[in-house]
Amino acid sequence: MNCMDFRRVSLEDPQGLSESATIHVQSCSACNVYYRQLLKQERLLERALNVGVPEDLVAHTLLRHGFEQKDIPAKTGNNQELDSTLTPINSSINSSFSWRRFATGFALVASIVAVTIGINVQQLSDPEEIARMLVSHIEEEAHTLSARDTVSKGRLTNTLSNVDIQQLAHLGDVTFAGNCLVDGKWAAHLVMKTEQGPVTVLLMPNSKLRSIDHLGSGGDRVQTVALRGGSMALIGSDRKELDLVRERVVSSVRIHHI
């Protein structure tokens, strides 16, 4: 790859350099300077794009969704639980109503909706049950274990920020990063490369799992750690590697909410 090619591809995706681009930037001092300045611009771009999100957006969205259920019978017809929290609302509300003004006045109802949803999250307590649920999740997403290339910084940052997690330090070789549902709650699903094979890390800011260290009959070891906000699970085969990954992740990320 020559300098012109490098500058072209780095502008297309500064955080997703190919192997040949990485080799070039390490050996070319001019492109190295260019790339560092481009990354600086990219960090500024990310900060600029991350405008503040209204704190009550979730509540408003769920409340408006609740009204929709009252006005239009759902296809599945099984939303009485959510609807029951909304009984004080006049059912004659129609689509021409000024939603924003109305929603502000009913912030209390929205908070009730949010609390109701929170209470309904099933809490697992049996270590075997927790381990089985997590291993079953990994089995369903077995393709995540076969990835070999390290994911881009952008992909990792995006996966973590989708669940309000900030990366404070380098996490290591992450070969898969994506968001998924674990027990009905959104999580960041990472796979880290270690000397003893891949270790799956599930960062679950919306789930409160009790801490366990469980060795399954199939040789899978499952650890869960209760964090300040949410929980983390590690699944792999080697306890020593799990311990190392756990320590690295705990010291490298920060969960913003809960």
Partner: peptide
Amino acid sequence: SLVEAYQKPLYR
């Protein structure tokens, strides 16, 4: 879960 996960990036 979709609302929780995607409201922020979608808003931005």
